[in-house]
Amino acid sequence: MNDLDLDVITRALPWLAQGLQYTVQLTCVAALGGTVLGTLLALARLSPRPIVAGLAASYVNLMRSVPLLLVIFWFYFLVPLGLQWLTSAENPPRVGAERSAYVTFILFEAAYFCEIVRAGIASVGAGQQAAARALGLDQAQVLVHVILPQAFRNMLPVLLTQAIILFQDVSLVSLLNVTDFVGAAGKIAQRDGRVVEMYLFVALVYLVLCSMTSALVRRWQRTHSIGQHPETAR
């Protein structure tokens, strides 16, 4: 093997940056969408109606038992068919793996975020619910103004940790020939025959980004330990 050729990386930077942008974008959209959908699923799972709770639970269990790669392939084929059915078009529209990945990851992550949100809601004491109801707030107001803000504050570290995992998992879309960060690096690596440099560089970027986020999470946990408010924390 020759010496490392770092010029390959410099030359490929614009292309890599584009891939990284897609990866970050997909991660953010999936994390936000997954949190919103996950919260709705969590509320459904806590519903007093057994049918609602049961349906939500089945969805979550299904998504959590199927490998992500399989889900990615499923939705790659299902999303166009679903859109065809929704719009009753004659032929399935061409969606493209880049865009179907958004749907895939939102739906997949929602299952994981659901369980995090459920734990977050459970972490808020029953007394808070009683106090909020005693003031005359209705169930929706209790959730929006009292339970969920506290739940999200308690679960923020876990949510961010899940987002880091998601950031890494997103690279699986490169198997559908999508030019995410890993996909972009892979294409250049093969074109220029510089596999080692490329994948070392990619690994380094992942390491730096993930360590930075983890450090942020730890810092946040230190200053926001239970019962402490940011202003009282040292």
């Binding site: 004491g125 007394g127 808070q128 009683a130 106090a131 909020a132 109801r133 005693a134 003031l135 005359g136 707030l137 209705d138 103004h145 009292v146 803000p149 506290q150 504050r153 019962g227 408010h229």
Partner: peptide, 20 residues
Amino acid sequence: LARLRARVGMVFQHFELFPH
């Protein structure tokens, strides 16, 4: 019931102020 509760004040052993 929500309206009824709004008219009756309640104070709890553990205060139950909203910490956020």
